[in-house]
Design a protein around this nucleic acid. Structure first.
Lengths: 165, 165
DNA sequence: CTGTAATGTCAACAAGCCTGACTTATTTTT
DNA sequence: AAAAATAAGTCAGGCTTGTTGACATTACAG
């Protein structure tokens, strides 16, 4: 509590301020997933499917192992999701050229269409929030989020932004 | 990175920038919950228990209905969590004075101790991120989070900051 | 006394995650 | 060429957290 407020930009780090940040993160994440969840309700898919679609759309041709690392789940868990998406014709799995053990993942037209709907809803939400908060706030937002990721996760994130890992 | 600060203040709203924000949110939330999850692993409790403990600690004497609204789950789901916490002596449920139908929730000493451990870990994570990002970034972060919560959720959050709803 | 509200309980079920053990190809190493 | 490692997939079983639906208890209000 009385943590020596040396006037020096430490004042905002009270436990109370931190707690408010934690709660804001909790509520914001709920708001963040609400829009796609609504769409998914009608489809028979869930958040896990959404995440897979998102990252396959993001980096088409990604192999299963890399997707596994990005999502941070077990292959059994991912496989169940992927199996239904492939069976339903939303995702296509192609044998690797260089290494035939690998399967490279692509969205079909139908898969891309669903991903678009989900993505549009979520981006709209994000865009509205960004507009309300303004560009400076957005820059700060991104900085804090980056800092909140741990080192390993940040790598996945960086790899996605570049072309290839 | 090359974060395109062309002053225009609309340039950052490209789909690509929004998508990066969405992904950052996804990864950051994982980092955000990682520390308490580690502690919970040893205890036999899960995130649902953590959330209940958090909000009971935050507003001692809160009744079940209010906690229900804040958490946004069904009473059956919360009840299971609450039942184990009460049975294990981490939470105490007292009959309301004014309205004896209500149950008011309090942490026991043991409950407060666990909540502290969880809270400390999460606050440490948050504090480190805040420090890395700096005060201006934190202000922006909070602004965007507020905007990301939808109206209903924001009410829950506001209710917590005041005394009574 | 009756209707409504707040709370709690039981049962059944699904999503989504996990571990462990194992198979099938294929590539790499020895 | 044989052995080891890697990528992917599969089966079986378990856990947590969420859902519905049906119903009981208690207490307040008219």
């Amino acid at each position: 509590m009385s943590e020596a407020q040396v006037g020096d930009s430490l004042l905002f780090l009270t436990d109370e301020q931190l707690r408010q940040g934690i709660e804001a993160m909790f509520f914001a994440y709920r708001g963040f997933t609400a829009a796609p969840d609504l769409i998914l309700d009608g489809t028979g898919y869930g958040r896990a499917h959404h995440r897979a679609l998102h990252f396959i759309a993001r980096a088409p041709g990604m192999n299963v192992n890399r997707l596994l690392m990005i999502l941070g789940v077990t292959k059994q868990s991912l496989n169940r999701v992927l199996r239904t998406l492939i069976a339903d014709g939303l995702v296509e799995s192609r044998v690797g050229r260089a290494d035939k053990r690998e399967r490279h993942l692509y969205l079909t037209e139908e898969g891309a269409a669903l991903e678009q709907r989900l993505s549009d809803a979520q981006r709209k939400w994000m865009r509205d929030a960004y507009r309300k908060a303004g560009p400076d706030a957005v820059a700060g937002f991104r900085q804090v989020l980056e800092a909140l990721m741990d080192a390993e996760i940040r790598k996945s994130h960086a790899a996605l932004r570049e072309g290839t890992p």
